[in-house]
Amino acid sequence: MATIDVNGKSFEVDEEGYLINLGEWNEAIAERFAGDDNTQLTPNHWEVITFLREYYNDYQIAPAVRVLTKAIGKKLGPEKGNSKYLYELFPYGPAKQACRYAGLPKPTGCI
């Protein structure tokens, strides 16, 4: 099993870099994942990451992109609930990249 080291602690990740143990997540891990992708996390990124963690807490799944986009629109308004906005924040794909930063598993139905 691969691991990453953050602040002197080691965390297990799967072969695609997703955190194995959801409960271990902290903000420094998200910063580390983003740093590895040369992404600087802004308040707009954090808004989506926080949203995903709440979604997972409520439903026990990582949402599909379409579902995430719609739910973000409902909660944060149409200017944020569209794929252009989300892909600008997370160019590798909002569900895959943002879910990984948020410590969630890869979304079910993500092919």
């Binding site: 409520d58 439903y59 026990q60 799944i61 949402p63 599909a64 579902v67 719609k70 739910a71």
Partner: peptide, 14 residues
């Protein structure tokens, strides 16, 4: 084991 019952409430969003 994972309690997957909350996921049924996500179906509406799908």
């Amino acid at each position: 084991m994972k309690n997957f019952s909350p996921t049924y409430r996500a179906l509406e969003g799908y």
